[in-house]
């Protein structure tokens, strides 16, 4: 059986909020190393990959592999019944029909319990190769969100160009064009504001801003975001979570521009 307790329901609430507009029905694959999720959007343009390691829970128990097929809109309805600071316990039997979510208030005696019916989801699982990216940009997640939002007003796509001078987000639309260039920046007093660019070779790729803006819904999960690029491979946008856990989004590049 599975029994996994999170100190704060907020983590799962935010993860589900960040991905529910991109993917609808997902398997949460549980085993002794933690809870993993991989799902593509309907158009097969983007892929979500989440890992919540067992260390992120306390305690965590999962005796055998269990796939919890859950509709994220149903999960959202139930998670709305939890306060951010509630302790969240997820329970399921070995061959479950339902998953049980229990919310306990940390400062009162309230205990809420919900069951969500599970679905059989036949999901294609993709092998994501280990990639040494040509460029990795680490920047404040709100800054990335703002850039995506600002450029979305002008165009449907953005070119991301990394050189040793910095990273340039540029777009071209009907009303004109825009570009934001960032250079490496180190703020000792406020390290959340740091911008780091690791570059082995220059990269230039074009991506859909609609998808990038969707990924940015995860901005509340981490103060900084890693944006990893190599020519002609999907972009990786990674939000690091506590206990070596992560929420990753992969986006296929636009072709032919």
């Amino acid at each position: 059986m599975l029994e996994a307790r999170l100190e704060q329901a907020e983590l799962l609430k935010k993860v589900v909020d960040a991905i529910k507009d991109l993917v609808q029905d997902c398997n949460f694959d549980c085993n002794d190393s933690g809870v993993a999720l991989q799902a593509m959007d309907n158009s097969h343009v983007a892929l979500v990959s989440m890992m919540l390691k067992s260390e992120a829970f306390s305690p965590f128990r999962c005796d055998r592999n269990i796939a919890l097929g859950i509709n994220l809109s149903s999960l959202t309805k139930v998670l709305r019944c939890a306060q951010n600071n509630d302790i969240l316990t997820v329970k399921a039997e070995d061959a479950p029909d339902v998953v049980n979510l229990m919310f306990e208030s940390s400062d009162s005696d309230r205990l809420s319990e919900y069951d969500i019916k599970l679905m059989d989801i036949d999901q294609e699982h993709l092998g994501i190769p280990e990639t040494e990216y040509a460029a990795t940009v680490t920047m404040p997640s709100p800054e990335f969100q703002r850039i995506c939002r600002d450029l979305s007003a002008l165009s449907e796509s953005v070119s991301i160009e990394c050189t040793k001078e910095g990273v340039k987000f540029a777009c071209n639309g009907d009303i004109g064009s825009g570009a934001v260039t960032l250079r490496s920046h180190s703020d000792v007093e406020n390290p959340d504001q740091n911008i780091k660019i690791d570059l082995t070779e220059p990269v230039a790729l074009t991506f859909s801003l609609k998808y990038l803006s969707n990924f940015c819904k995860a901005s509340g999960l981490a103060k900084s975001v890693n944006i990893c690029l190599s020519n002609e491979v999907p972009l990786l946008v990674e939000y690091g979570l506590a206990a070596n856990s992560y929420l990753r989004f992969y986006l296929a590049p636009k072709i032919g521009d």
Binding site: V45, P129, V233, A252, K254, I255, D257
Partner: peptide
Amino acid sequence: LAGQGNITSFFSNG
């Protein structure tokens, strides 16, 4: 989605 790459052409079935 003209000109948009597909993620399945980059990642293998596994």
